[in-house]
Design a protein around this nucleic acid. Structure first.
Lengths: 219, 219
DNA sequence: ATATTGCAAATTGGATCCAATATATAATAT
DNA sequence: ATATTATATATTGGATCCAATTTGCAATAT
């Protein structure tokens, strides 16, 4: 008799665990810009040696999320306002293109999933959750494009600015405006109007960029 | 008396050296798709221990240039024809945008530098050099945009397909066509016609994609 | 002959140790 | 008191060692 081959939970390597945890902490903004990442301290936190920690830091550096100097260690990478601005422009270009490709490939399930993220988004009162749901909403739509490389790059760009985006959502009318614009994008998708979805996505991103830049300048 | 603080040749870390060397070897195609990267072997080659090698491999993995499996090691990441196709589409979108932004910011020096790369390109008979000069030509023009994040992403995408691009250049009329199209792009830049530079760049990339895909399918 | 089992070698992941460098602190000179 | 030097501590980079896992190969059974 032959048994079905079961994937016994391939427990991830320590370095992968540390990497994911640090990445999440940086993206969410729990680790502040410029905050040093002490290998020893992190190793103790995860009950490992410094080796997996160093591999994790190497990978984070490659993603641009931390900056290291030889013998001085790694710190959470800050980001200049001009770079924030450039990354939002980049996102506008790319995400517009991706959603345009995605629209003709969206299933009913995709659209209803996006809609429910949208509803959770307005229902939620936890600012930390807004960022996640915002991202899930967009990501659900983008996935339909089938463009895995494009989506990978989109996610990498988002990782770099996610914490600022979250901050932007908490500004006065950030949530409200985001929700209106999400509905507009969703509507375009449901109408199968790819060009409109593209334009609205770009406006959504460029609008967020402007309020964010103004906010950064004002202090 | 106070001496000027001199930056004594900050010799790079071993892991950085190994990383750069492996990256170059993969990009140039010296390491073939699927070829395993043995930590021990590489460590001996560079007279180091396996630790820096592992950090280098971690970083390469993050860039998508190698794929690792726990306890099985890392291999040079192959790439499916569909992914090649997607990356060329991605490049067309992005590089078109970048050169469009770059055109109004191009100095005389930029243009003459690009022109000389172009001339070296036609003069060279070494297929390996073609790839380098091709890349230097485009890069020189893109740099003028000042869009460092965009350019970083462009380079990462190029790194993934560089070896296939080189192969494409060596095809029958690859060189000849590339040169004609380069001249066309350069002409558009010199005429300060940003839209034309954008369109020609996109056609250049999509044309290369088509010949490459046909070539991949034919065998 | 083919498939299965049981080692032995090879290879990777991680821990511990040492060397190189940076940072903080105390001692000294002006 | 301030600035400079010397010293101690902390931290990172890398080497070596051990454990976990895979892979290759021989022995065995059918």
């Amino acid at each position: 008799m032959k048994l079905e081959s079961v994937d016994i939970s391939q427990t991830a390597s320590a370095s992968a665990i540390v990497f994911e945890a640090l990445k999440r902490a940086i993206i969410k903004g729990e680790l502040k810009d410029g905050e040093p990442l002490r290998q020893d301290e992190i190793a103790r936190l995860f009950n490992t040696s410094r080796i997996p920690v160093r591999e994790a830091i190497s990978r984070l550096q490659e993603q641009g999320l931390v900056k290291s100097q030889r013998y001085k260690g790694a710190v959470v990478a800050g980001i200049a306002p001009e770079e924030v601005s450039e990354i939002f422009d980049f996102r506008a270009l790319l995400e517009g293109h991706v959603i345009e490709q995605a629209v003709p490939r969206m299933s009913k399930e995709t659209l209803s999933a996006a809609r429910s993220y949208c509803e959770e988004f307005v229902a939620s009162s936890d600012p930390m959750e807004w960022g996640d749901l915002n991202r899930k909403f967009h990501s659900a739509l983008y996935q339909a494009s089938g463009l895995s490389y494009h989506n990978g790059v989109v996610n990498a760009a988002l990782d770099r600015v996610d914490r600022y985006l979250r901050a932007q959502l908490t500004l006065t009318d950030g949530m409200e405006r985001a929700n209106i614009e999400h509905m507009g994008i969703l509507e375009a998708c449901e109408k199968q109007d790819a060009k409109m979805a593209c334009d609205r996505t770009r406006q959504h991103i460029l609008g967020a960029k402007n309020t964010l830049i103004n906010h950064l300048k004002s202090k």
